[in-house]
Amino acid sequence: MIEASIIRAAALRLNPDCDLKKSLISYCEFYGIQAACIISCVGSLRSLTIRFANKSNLTVIEEKFEIISLAGTISQHEAHLHISISDGEGKMLGGHLAEGSLIYTTCEIVIGILDDVVFKRELDSTTGYKELKIYQK
Rank of each mutant, 00 (worst) to 15 (best):
L114P: 00
K133I: 14
H82N: 15
C18D: 10
L97R: 10
R51A: 11
N15R: 12
I6Q: 09
M92L: 09
P16D: 00
L81K: 03
G128P: 00
S84H: 14
G90P: 02
L81G: 01
H80W: 12
Y31Q: 08
E108V: 12
I61M: 01
A79N: 04
C107P: 07
D87Q: 05
I39V: 08
I113P: 04
E89F: 11
S86M: 07
E99R: 14
V117I: 13
S101E: 02
I85N: 04
A36S: 01
R51H: 01
S125I: 15
T73I: 13
C37A: 15
L123C: 06
T127N: 05
S69N: 06
H96E: 11
L97Q: 08
E29K: 06
E3W: 07
V118L: 09
D17T: 09
L24R: 07
E3N: 05
L93V: 00
G32Q: 03
L58G: 13
G94V: 00
D116L: 03
A4N: 07
L24D: 08
L81Y: 06
L20E: 06
S75N: 00
A9I: 13
V117H: 02
G100I: 03
T49R: 06
T73D: 11
M92H: 13
T127I: 04
A79Q: 04
G95V: 00
D87I: 06
V117N: 00
N57C: 14
G95W: 02
S44A: 04
A79E: 02
S47T: 14
L14A: 05
L14W: 06
D17F: 03
I113K: 04
D17C: 09
I68M: 12
I74Q: 00
K91W: 15
M1Y: 15
V110E: 11
L123F: 12
E89G: 10
I74T: 09
S44W: 04
Y129W: 12
S56C: 07
A4Y: 10
T59M: 10
R13G: 13
S86E: 10
I25D: 02
H77C: 05
E89L: 11
S84K: 12
D19R: 02
L14M: 05
I50K: 02
A36G: 04
I103S: 01
S47D: 10
F52H: 01
K137H: 03
E122H: 08
M1A: 08
G88M: 03
Y129M: 07
L48E: 03
H82Q: 12
F119K: 09
K55H: 12
I50S: 08
N57F: 15
T59P: 13
E108R: 11
G95M: 07
I6H: 14
